[in-house]
Amino acid sequence: MLNNDEKIISSFTGKLEEILTLELNAGNRIRETYKGDWPYAGCIMLFLEKPFLTPIQRSIEGVVFRNVNDPHYWKAEYYDKTMNQFLCCGFGGVPDFSNM
């Protein structure tokens, strides 16, 4: 764990909190938390260690799912536009550059 701020974790709400709970129950872990002004002012972000382990939910009102797939950042993310919250997942280990 790099930086896990319990205040940030407890402020995570709504549909992304539900997805986070499912992910933690499936065996994923929070790797890091962030609160700041990137990419949007006042946003909070939670980063999971592994790729999402539960089925991707693409039709949640107000929530955008995106495959980022950038080893410099993260694999995928949910963004709740109303709550200004991100739930991001990592690659779960060393990135595989063999297919690039």
Score class of each variant (00 low, 15 high):
1 M>S: 12
1 M>F: 08
2 L>Q: 04
2 L>M: 08
7 K>E: 12
8 I>D: 06
13 T>G: 01
14 G>E: 10
16 L>M: 09
16 L>A: 05
17 E>K: 14
17 E>D: 04
17 E>H: 13
18 E>D: 14
19 I>P: 03
19 I>G: 00
20 L>N: 08
22 L>Q: 15
24 L>P: 10
27 G>F: 11
27 G>D: 09
29 R>V: 03
29 R>E: 04
30 I>H: 15
30 I>V: 15
30 I>E: 09
32 E>L: 07
32 E>P: 00
42 G>N: 12
42 G>W: 11
49 E>D: 10
50 K>S: 13
50 K>Q: 15
50 K>W: 13
51 P>S: 11
52 F>M: 05
52 F>C: 04
54 T>P: 00
56 I>Q: 08
59 S>P: 00
60 I>V: 05
60 I>Y: 08
62 G>W: 04
62 G>T: 07
65 F>E: 10
65 F>M: 13
66 R>P: 01
68 V>A: 04
69 N>T: 10
69 N>C: 05
70 D>I: 11
71 P>V: 15
72 H>Q: 11
72 H>D: 15
73 Y>C: 06
74 W>N: 13
75 K>L: 11
75 K>F: 07
76 A>I: 06
77 E>A: 13
78 Y>K: 03
79 Y>Q: 03
80 D>P: 02
82 T>N: 10
82 T>R: 08
82 T>K: 11
83 M>L: 12
84 N>M: 00
84 N>W: 01
86 F>P: 07
86 F>K: 04
88 C>G: 05
89 C>L: 04
89 C>I: 04
90 G>C: 01
91 F>N: 08
91 F>R: 09
91 F>V: 05
92 G>W: 14
92 G>K: 06
93 G>Y: 11
93 G>E: 08
93 G>I: 09
93 G>M: 11
93 G>P: 06
97 F>K: 10
97 F>Q: 08
97 F>I: 03
100 M>T: 15
